[in-house]
Design a protein around this nucleic acid. Structure first.
Lengths: 233, 233
DNA sequence: ACGGGTTGCGTTGTATACAATGACGCATTA
DNA sequence: TAATGCGTCATTGTATACAACGCAACCCGT
């Protein structure tokens, strides 16, 4: 299901993207965080100078950050006009979750033929941990589930061993829309999500790629359903 | 099968990428062209200053161009060290064509349910044109086939109407590796490729998404086969 | 002869200054 | 009053100058 961020922050720190201490990376993370937190709502107009002052750097690294964010699809650059935070339509929703379904099910299928015992063990442990959080208190603590869920999906990508596939999934999953999916889950949705996870692990154990792939596809599309009330998010 | 560039230059001119007359865009196209033409071989080290002089612009737009090319996967940036043109391994080959197979077959499936008569007519005309070129002289004129082939695959993306899917396919298809696939085709390979195209059109006419999707998957994987002799390209 | 430290050079990273472009408001005119 | 042309302003695009970093060669001490 539409988990929060399919990307694992720790592994995210490859050369190409945002981990280092360069000013450009700090600006990148700062602006990105702001957009994801709706500090700048969709449609907002971002001025380079202002961002530079807010981040405490010069315009040059801000420019680089904006270019990267544009490539990520978080905002749009219009020549001589500036950066505009992207808004999301129903079509975007369909496209994003359609891509996720295609790519992540592909990953699940690959992982089925490449998973080793230690991987299965860690996946199982993650399921345990997530179920513990869900069954814990009254209100579900999303801040504790989300990292576990990210790790689950990220581990699947690692097992599949397809770097490009993983990179594309991260591109898709790190959309504000997707990131907020998890928070919309009801207790029932969460329970189903956990079941999906378990079933995927089982399919991997059976080395049944078709099975794993199918469950993953359902898992993602179930997340799409949370947005059936449009809300123009 | 692995056609040359799946991207259609004309439609390429959306805001985000390379079409305008800005210095940064000129630098982008110049460097990109150089890499694709093997003017800078894989592993080559690119210096910003040198590129700036060659392009006739300053370092600032060159920097932007390098960042974009890095996002495209054509080169890799190492902090404080510079840009290095990417080399390709067998794993890259498998990943790239695997992604193409997944994404383009998805497009074909979508297109089957959305194609209109005028689309089918244009696809048919493109098949006619390509077959005319192939059956023409002694040696096949790739410079005439390639644009037609690009248009064929690009039109399928348009018909499918999924912008993100199209964007991702272009990302994958515009790798130097893929761009040179076509030139490796034997006359037999080309004939099979034309048959695939025809069959796809037929499947679209029958509104059979599964059929179209399957043929496209075969079409792409047949292109992968051309590289079975590694050659470390 | 070999190892460690140091210095010098080249390259990228960042900041600032200048030019060009598009948008907005105002005045002018029919 | 509405439409249009012009001027000003804000903002991005580009160029240049300076700082920081990494690498390599060299020198010196052992």
């Amino acid at each position: 299901m539409a988990d929060s961020a399919g990307a694992l922050a720790p592994q995210w720190d490859n050369g190409s993207s945002g981990g280092s201490n360069r000013a450009a990376d700090r600006a990148y993370r700062f602006i990105r965080e702001g957009i994801l937190a709706s500090r700048w709502p969709p449609g907002a107009h971002l001025r380079e100078q202002e961002l530079a002052e807010l981040t405490g750097v010069s315009r040059t690294p801000v420019r680089e950050a904006l270019r990267r964010l544009s490539a990520d699809g978080l905002l749009q650059l219009v020549p001589n006009l500036g950066a505009k935070v992207n808004a999301w339509t129903i079509q975007d929703l369909d496209e994003i979750f359609g891509l996720r379904a295609t790519l992540e099910s592909q990953v699940a299928g690959l992982a089925a033929s490449r998973a080793e015992p230690q991987h299965l063990a860690e996946l199982g442990a993650l399921c345990d941990a997530m179920e513990a959080v869900v069954g814990d208190g009254d209100a579900v603590d999303f801040s504790r589930i989300t990292p576990l869920n990210d790790r689950f999906h990220g581990l699947l990508i690692d097992i599949a061993g397809d770097r490009r596939l993983g990179q594309m999934i991260r591109q898709v999953v790190e959309m504000p829309l997707v990131l907020r999916t998890f928070a919309r889950y009801s207790r029932r949705d969460l329970a189903r999500s956990m079941n999906h996870h378990r079933e995927i692990v089982e399919a991997l154990t059976a080395r049944d790629g078709e099975w794993a792939s199918s469950v993953m596809r359902a898992h993602v599309r179930a997340g799409r359903a949370v947005f059936t009330v449009p809300k123009t998010e």
